[in-house]
Design a protein around this nucleic acid. Structure first.
Lengths: 136, 136
DNA sequence: GCAAAATTGAGAACAATTCTCATTTTATTT
DNA sequence: AAATAAAATGAGAATTGTTCTCAATTTTGC
């Protein structure tokens, strides 16, 4: 594997590793520009994709809007807020993850992706406000 | 709910109900045109979205490419082929589905979406050919 | 330090989906 | 069944997220 290093690539990986917000490519791009003002958006897309191929990151495909990336490659799953699209880690005892791994093993599947729908705390409170307003 | 009927809407729903292929909006559009040559693509998108809102269909968000729709709204999950993108139903004993429903109940989530990655039979055989070719 | 290979940045290109709006269809009222 | 109001349509423009192209630059291996 010749090459496989560049300032940009390393920066992108560090930015991704430094957050738990499951950011979009665009968010990573903006954060990278703080350090490397000249970095291009295509470079960010390219390298995020490469990190996924290398198994150093995962891509989370949410219903509407942009794909999200995560440098946490340990098996885990996510909740997505159906209102704002926010992605959060799902704290779990691991029983379900183990069951899914087992299912893959038995059936020869390559992997799984599990997403729960959950209105996030922020949207929950805004929803409350809306409900009480329309009640008046 | 005034209205809620149109020839187009009904046709779109019938087309979707008539297949197990988890089609894209575009595929539904082409099938509808056999019956209604003048139907517009936007109408198909609009109504598929409406069917989802009404709980008469689900939308399956696959990694790359177009969203897929399914008129089977009973809880079940899918495999997606990482090569050609084909979506198939996952025959299951229901244990996992029950576990996920239970998790939603306990945590107050609204729902779940589970997708397994599985190279489909077609792509599996093409892969074999490719492997044996590059072996020569 | 030099040549080959890999990577970059900029913007064009692309694909899927959504939006706009004048026209048509459907529902409601009389 | 005519008139009116409400809902939905088709066409194409617009938008969005992502990928592609390619000349210039950076990195690698000697």
């Amino acid at each position: 594997m010749a090459g496989n290093y560049s300032v940009q690539r390393e920066t992108i990986y560090q930015v991704l590793k430094s957050t738990k917000t499951h950011p979009s490519a665009d968010w990573v791009y903006r954060r990278c520009r703080d350090v490397l003002p000249g970095i291009g958006l295509a470079t960010v897309y390219r390298n995020l994709e490469l990190l996924v191929e290398q198994g150093r990151a995962i891509k989370i495909n949410v219903a509407q809007g942009k794909d999200r990336y995560d440098a946490d490659v340990t098996p885990h799953f996510h909740t997505v807020c159906p209102i704002c699209g926010k992605v959060s880690d799902c704290d779990t005892d691991g029983v379900i993850a183990k069951a899914l791994d087992g299912e893959c093993e038995r059936r020869g599947y390559q992997g799984w992706s599990l997403i729960f729908t959950d209105v996030c705390p922020d949207c929950r409170s805004i929803k409350q406000i809306k409900i009480s307003r329309s009640d008046q």
